[in-house]
């Protein structure tokens, strides 16, 4: 059965199905029950499954994640909501030192099927701490799987796969795309959680994006086509592990790589992809891989966010750079 849903409603449908399929699945977080979450992702689920399974918690992120660990010890599969990206840091120890490491520390005896949902990213004119992209911290942490969806179909499928995963999953939701509609086939066979997807085929440049910037990357590919360039767009979907095989195969074909994300550049996902792909297909590269990212600054005030977020033009500028065409840095010198 196929239905047109917003990304937010698709997540809601995926969570509903997860709750229905397995009675050990619990949702917990701030305002997720009676209110249905500040983005309404959990709307109606408390009414349907009860306050015992859709739990409004005290306002304590470490408490939410820490008690989820205890519930995992008891055989539950908690799905925690962190209300906004910038609110995740109080839970950092519980995620990085506990959730991520406990399977290893217990010699594999404890499984932590914990999903931590995080609305992330900017572009909605929000106040501070509401527009961040902290995914690299978690992709850098052994023991976690880190994924992000970019469209309603993946939102539905990937949240179910995350909840079903015996490994802890950081599930990043592109909040500025919550209201984007798309077809959701409830019976579609989902791709494995750790795999990327080619969402536009091309032969000149490989453009890697994830989460909120996949739509922007697709727009850029269309615009480049008008200019006679064929851009292949990869929706990375998983940041740990990264599906390097898919990216490598594409770059071997195109010889050029542009990576884009909202998160700051240094030590980011783009850096890891550039390094690994350079390692894997150095002799196939026609140009140095380029990153189009947020700057190494705190997320700026709303009226300045357009000067932080990668957009169509900045991506096309990088495409021109790898193509050896005139671009904003032609003739530019640091000195």
């Amino acid at each position: 059965m196929t239905e047109q849903l917003t990304l937010s409603r698709a997540l809601n449908a995926g969570l509903r199905r997860s709750l229905a399929d397995n009675d050990r699945v619990l949702l917990m977080g701030e305002d997720i029950g009676t209110l249905g979450g500040v983005f309404r992702v959990t709307d109606g689920l408390k009414a349907e499954f009860g306050a015992d399974r859709v739990i409004d918690t005290p306002l304590a992120e470490a408490g939410i994640v820490g008690t989820a660990i205890g519930l995992a010890y008891r055989g539950y599969r908690p799905v925690c909501e962190i209300q906004f990206d910038g609110f995740i840091y109080p839970a950092f120890d519980q995620i990085v030192a506990q959730v991520a490491k406990l399977h290893y520390r217990t010699g594999g005896n404890l499984v932590l099927p914990i999903t931590i949902r995080v609305p992330y990213g900017g572009g909605i004119g929000a106040v501070e701490h509401h527009s961040e992209s902290p995914e690299a911290y978690f992709a850098h942490t052994a023991g976690l799987r880190v994924v992000t969806c970019a469209n309603p179909q993946d939102a539905y499928s990937m949240i179910r796969e995350a909840v079903a995963s015996d490994d802890p999953v950081l599930f990043f939701e592109p909040k500025r795309r919550y209201w984007v509609k798309g077809d959701v086939d409830f019976e579609e066979e989902a791709l494995p959680l750790g795999s990327a997807r080619i969402v536009a085929t091309g032969s000149d440049v490989t453009l890697v994006a994830y989460g909120p910037l996949v739509a922007t990357a697709l727009d850029a590919a269309l615009a480049a086509a008008d200019d006679g360039l064929s851009v292949e767009v990869i929706d990375l979907r998983s940041l740990s592990p990264v599906d390097f095989d898919t990216v490598e195969a594409s770059v071997r074909k195109t010889g050029r790589l542009v990576i884009t994300h909202e998160a700051a550049q240094s030590g980011g996902i783009g850096a890891e992809i550039a390094a690994s792909i350079t390692d894997r297909c150095f002799y196939h590269l026609e140009a140095a891989p380029q990153r189009v990212t947020g700057f190494d600054i705190p997320y700026p005030p709303a009226k300045l966010e357009e000067h932080f977020l990668p957009d169509l033009d900045r991506i096309l500028d990088a495409v021109d750079r790898v193509m050896g065409r005139e671009n904003s840095l032609t003739g530019w010198s640091a000195s």
């Binding site: 470490a62 820490g66 989820a68 205890g70 519930l71």
Partner: peptide, 14 residues
């Protein structure tokens, strides 16, 4: 102190 939260979660599970 991290384990106090795990104990509490376990207790909620019980």
């Amino acid at each position: 102190g991290a384990q106090t939260l795990h104990a509490t979660g376990y207790a909620i599970g019980c």
